[in-house]
């Protein structure tokens, strides 16, 4: 079947249009993050971040344009190392020179403006590490019990495990909250990582699929050699399952990094917030004015996920396909 050039462009053009639309929000996020504040409030919009320069006292200095008085003169504020210097002058419109200049310092300013950014980052990374370790260890152990040991009633219990995935979080939210409250865990990170050590149904399902595909003989011959079940699990099955373990770890990392509802419910002190909750808090405090800092903050929270995608692209695609096709 030969595909004509016409047919090719019939698929390429809509793809390109869709791709541009999908890329636009991220591109706009980064561009806004690199702009000075006055360029976030212009109509029509300015696309690239620019820095204006004017001749003041015979020297070309960076300025902020405040507005034009008439057609030929504009009022500007001279900028120094700390931003506005408080010195205002009028210069001819024609003498203003604009250069493309990304303001990298917006990122530093956003970090300062968010208050506890280093704490947010630390809390998020601690939670990511603990939940990844917890879910990989526990889910793999449980999946082994559901796939490579034959015990009576196993498959019926597994159906029960699958059924728990249907339970919407709001149904268990209140009792979990009051339980953690009774334990004195509200306002600590514990409610967000301790459950990860008790296996997640979804991860057990994924790992079980993989373990079932491994040949039975592997375990049989090891058993004949007198290896214990734990030994077979740790030194035969786990090493063979690295690809799927990476997928589980990756998905858990993302889930923890992106989680908002959990931190919103359980965390009370701003110092304990995660990045996602901290970003929402920052937005609710300062939203609507400092768009350049808000976009810089959003870039800092979303950026690591994008970087992770580029490093682990094939695991993402494989993992997503696994979840959708094997169901």
């Amino acid at each position: 079947m030969r595909i004509s050039r016409w047919q090719k462009s019939l698929t390429f053009v809509p793809l390109l249009a869709g791709g541009v639309v999908f890329a636009l929000p991220l591109w706009w996020m980064v561009l806004t993050a690199l702009k000075p504040i006055e360029q976030t409030a212009t109509t029509p919009v300015t696309f690239l971040p620019r820095q204006a320069y004017a001749l003041v006292d015979g020297k070309r200095v960076p300025v902020r344009v405040l507005g034009s008085l008439d057609d030929s003169q504009v009022r500007v504020e001279v900028l120094d190392a700390h931003g506005g210097s408080g010195r205002f002058v009028e210069v001819p419109q024609a003498g203003i020179l604009k250069k493309i200049a990304p303001r990298w310092e917006n990122f530093g300013n956003a970090i300062t403006a968010m208050g506890y950014f280093p704490r947010y980052l630390r809390n998020t990374l601690v939670l990511c590490m603990l939940t990844v370790v917890g879910t990989v260890l526990s889910s793999a152990t449980v999946a082994y019990g559901f796939s490579r040991v034959d015990w009576p009633g196993r498959d019926r219990v597994f159906i029960l495990l699958l059924a728990t995935m249907m339970v919407p979080f709001p149904v268990v939210m209140v009792p979990l909250y009051s339980m953690f409250r009774a334990m004195g865990w509200i306002g600590t990170l514990r409610p967000l990582w301790v459950p990860a050590f008790f296996a997640s149904a979804f991860n057990v399902f994924l790992l079980r699929q993989f373990f079932m595909q491994l040949p039975r003989d592997l375990s049989e011959s090891a058993r004949l050699d007198g290896a214990s079940e734990l030994r077979i699990f740790v030194s035969i099955i786990l090493p063979l399952s690295k690809p799927v373990l990476v997928v589980v770890a990756l998905f858990q990392f993302l889930a923890t990094w992106n989680d908002f509802l959990g931190p919103l419910i359980y965390l009370t002190d701003q110092k304990d917030f995660t990045l996602a909750l901290g970003l929402q808090f920052f937005q609710s405090q300062h939203g609507g004015t400092q768009w350049h800092l808000l976009m810089a903050a959003a870039t800092l929270v979303a950026g690591p996920v994008i970087v992770l995608y580029f490093f682990a692209q094939k695991f993402f695609v494989r993992g997503i396909a696994m979840t959708g096709l094997k169901a």
Binding site: P25, L26, W28, M29, W257, N258, F260, L275, A276, L277, L279, Q280, Q283, G287, L294, M295, A297, A298, V301, A302, V305
Partner: peptide, 8 residues
């Protein structure tokens, strides 16, 4: 992260 997406 949905929060970052919503903010954008």
């Amino acid at each position: 992260p949905l929060v970052a997406v919503a903010v954008v």
